[in-house]
Design a protein around this nucleic acid. Structure first.
Lengths: 248, 248
DNA sequence: ACAAAAGTGTTAGAAGTACACCCATGT
DNA sequence: ACATGGGTGTACTTCTAACACTTTTGT
């Protein structure tokens, strides 16, 4: 404790967010195309540390704004959407991760597949490409600025990990969904097929889904729609969620 | 992205550490006293935000120092010891958690029981009370400054949680230990008794301990000493450990 | 000899995995 | 009718918990 103030020493605080969603291949075919993939939006840097490279959406932390609020703002600015799930990922602060000293508090968020598709289609229709923002398949990322490649890798690891013991996968789905939808989300996250029979039994052993009386009719036998049974969180998001996440 | 610099807006970055160890009740009786408890050191605040209250050891982040290095420094200043285990806990940044705007990146550390006992005894013998530092039982904490009570609670939750699926508990033990030592560490963390027979089988199913030829002789049948089988981490400490933890 | 911890064996139940099979719908 | 995904049944394996029992020391 040599210094007593700690101010004005050139350390700045940024907030970035790894925004994840699930998207079907062909960008469309509302119902079933091929296997869905994890996708995320990146921003092309125009200024010089790593100008031209792609980076996570983010910005400087405002003095009157909470950390999670800043992440939510980032998300809204990039996608115009509210998160289905938002959790702090990690604080990155290696001395050499940027030419100037920057501490990045990184969040990760899940977005509902349907809203994202809708949003993307709307933009495409309007012909407007949101400035310098593009969506990438998580398995085919471009050159990334700073340590953002490591950050994304860690976020994906966390997602896979958390899918194993919580209900995060529902963050990709609309309020009502079939068990096949849910299973597909898990399969996409985990990268392997799950037995439909066992999956069904496992999820309803948790008693967290309640069946509705609605069915999704499609090309075959109709599937029952389910929705969340509780107001309980999809997963524990940290020490002070959900309060911190309240951005209002 | 309204601002482009983010500098000089009054946001400061602090690093605090929840330093946990396991201690036997009577402060002594090297061998077995009563059940061990989780204990941690706190620092009495002398300056005014919460002057007089107890707080986590910590300080301002230095511009040329990594986050984990700052945590390790904190630990050394408070206990004179190096961590058995060090991991980032969370970044706390609520706007109202301090009168001024402070982002606290909090780490948690485990210390070897034997070294801590040794260190404490040495200090006690020398009659020197390290200035304003005192150790508290985790179940009997004093009034805490800021949001530090929540932080400690979260650290203990994380410890319990991680004990369930990793080998963190070894962070409390010296390099060689008996299975009873290890089981006692888990019992202390989890707060419940474990079956010695099943515990034995579970740990050697993981193949992470190698038996030595040494035995600890005591009041009863001698117990074999074990040590870590691998150089593998006790648990995954985050996206960039162990590099980040290297403080040299 | 006896107390007590070290260490082994056995069994019952829970949970996870694989897969055969029936059901209901669109074509 | 038949292909296909929705949904049920069942056997098998693996994990877990409980606890009886044997071994080895100090006293």
């Amino acid at each position: 404790m040599t210094r007593s103030t700690g101010s004005e020493d050139g350390i700045r605080v940024a907030v970035s967010t790894v925004i994840l969603t699930m998207r079907r291949d062909g960008t469309l075919r509302q119902s079933q195309g091929s296997a869905p993939r994890i996708a995320l939006p990146l921003v092309r840097r125009t200024r010089d540390p790593h100008a031209g490279a792609w980076a996570l959406p983010g910005g400087w932390l405002d003095a009157h704004e909470g950390l999670a609020a800043a992440a939510a703002r980032t998300l809204a600015e990039t996608t115009g959407l509210a998160p289905s799930y938002l959790e702090q990922l990690y604080a990155f602060g290696a001395v050499d991760r940027s030419p100037s000293r920057v501490i990045s508090v990184v969040y990760w968020a899940l977005l509902r597949e349907d809203l994202v598709d809708q949003q993307l289609a709307a933009h495409r229709a309007a012909g407007e490409e949101i400035e310098n923002v593009a969506w990438f398949d998580a398995s085919a990322l471009p050159d990334l600025a700073f340590d953002h490649a490591d950050i994304i890798e860690y976020a994906l690891w966390r997602l896979r990990n958390k899918a194993g013991y919580s209900r995060v996968a529902q963050g990709f789905l609309p309020p009502e969904f079939t068990l096949a939808d849910l299973r597909e989300a898990y399969e996409t996250i985990l990268g392997r097929r799950l037995d439909p029979a066992n999956f069904r039994r496992q999820v309803d052993a948790t008693r967290t889904l309640i069946p509705t009386n609605a069915f999704r009719t499609g090309s075959h036998r109709p599937a029952r729609l389910y929705r969340d049974a509780t107001d309980v969180e999809l997963a524990d998001r940290g020490p002070l969620a959900p309060e911190e996440t309240r951005t209002s």
